[in-house]
């Protein structure tokens, strides 16, 4: 039987694995409300207003208040909805987003109490494919949620979500192929180590791939300018029109968790993961903070785009995905393949 687990090359005790899981989950979920607050604050600054500043010092408790308000609301659903799927859909969304968190490398292997520990949840040998697999499953959360709501607006949103997934998953996947070829591995830690070896972060040699991947990542998170599945002006709330209270809070969290996770993946693939520029080599304990700093920087970019760009139209989104992004990603892959072989 072939091994499907990670080839970590060393043994990690069970207690360390459990501890790691808890810490990564806790840290990952701590970043989410910070990004949530940052979005509201930064959007406020972009839009010439102050943003939340009433709940707690500097409005720091605002995310807590938001989520608290939603959770205390009455749960209701339309008569036409399918109850089981209606409840399941947001859970799928948030589960898939947090599952991807497991492969984000926050650092390399370190020694803790004499035990070698990798600063990541799990280093699967399929690496980045794991992220794409869960990214694809995440859309079931949207499609099922829209379908099970039994509302026409939700249905239209769900259809848009499905179409968007197909269009952008392909381009995003192809964009990563260049990185994988340059690194010679699918494993995220080895991709970062390849960037350390060359002393060149992949966003420079793989600039086209970087742009295509980032665009596809925006489409995956359903954020402006690709927020068509929820397009508030057109479809009221799209797939989450009928959700209120906890269900909506779950979708809300999944959206921000997706931003965090995709920022982390982008940072790992293209921006050197835990590495610092100019050959600065800090002690190992700094690595996780470098990754988190990069996550925040990329999340800021997400917010910036939201404050700037209008929404694309459905057909424009499709033709942009298939006629521009996909050919770009394909050419990028071809050129990279030729260059990798020649050198």
């Amino acid at each position: 039987m072939t091994t499907v687990l990670a080839e970590v090359g060393f043994y990690e005790p069970v207690w360390i694995q459990i501890l790691k899981a808890i810490i990564i989950f806790a840290v990952g979920l701590q970043i989410v409300p910070i990004v949530l607050l940052a979005e509201r604050k930064v959007l406020g600054r972009f839009q010439n207003r102050i943003g939340p500043n009433r709940v707690g010092p500097f409005g720091a408790m605002q995310p807590l208040a938001d989520i608290g308000k939603l959770l205390w609301k009455e749960e209701f659903r339309p008569k036409t909805s399918i109850g089981f799927l209606f409840v399941l859909a947001p859970i799928i969304s948030v589960l898939t987003a947090s599952a991807t968190l497991a492969i984000v490398p926050f650092g390399n292997v370190v020694d803790i109490f004499g035990e070698p520990v990798g600063l990541y949840g799990i280093d699967v040998n399929i690496g980045i494919l794991y992220a794409f697999a869960f990214g694809a499953v995440a859309f079931y959360g949207i499609v099922l949620g829209g379908w099970a709501s039994g509302s026409k607006f939700s249905f239209l949103g769900a259809m848009r979500g499905a179409a968007q997934l197909i269009s952008y998953e392909v381009a995003g996947g192809l964009a990563v192929v260049g990185v994988v070829m340059m690194a010679g591995s699918l494993s995220l830690t080895e991709i970062v180590e390849a960037q350390a070896r060359d002393g060149l972060w992949f966003f420079i040699p793989q600039f086209v791939g970087f742009i295509v991947f980032l665009t596809a990542a925006f489409a995956e998170t359903n954020r402006a300018p690709f927020d068509l599945p929820e397009a508030d002006a057109e479809l009221v709330g799209g797939y989450n029109t009928e959700y209120g209270g906890g269900g909506f809070a779950t979708y809300y969290m999944a959206e921000y968790l997706n931003i965090v996770v995709l920022s982390a993946i982008t940072a790992t693939l293209f921006l050197g993961g835990w590495l610092l520029p100019f050959g600065i080599d800090p002690p190992t304990w700094v690595d996780p903070f470098v990754v988190i700093a990069k996550i925040f920087a990329l999340s800021f970019f997400w917010i910036w785009i939201r404050a700037t760009l209008p929404r694309l139209r459905y057909d424009q989104l499709m033709s942009f995905g298939w006629k521009i992004l996909l050919p770009l990603a394909t050419i990028n892959t071809l050129v990279t393949a030729i260059l990798v072989v020649v050198w």
């Binding site: 959007l43 972009f46 839009q47 010439n48 207003r49 402006a224 300018p225 927020d227 397009a231 002006a233 939201r306 404050a307 700037t308 760009l309 209008p310 929404r311």
Partner: peptide, 10 residues
């Protein structure tokens, strides 16, 4: 309505 939300505040 076009999705450019900042314009509203300006």
């Amino acid at each position: 309505d076009l999705g450019a939300m900042s314009m509203f505040w300006f």
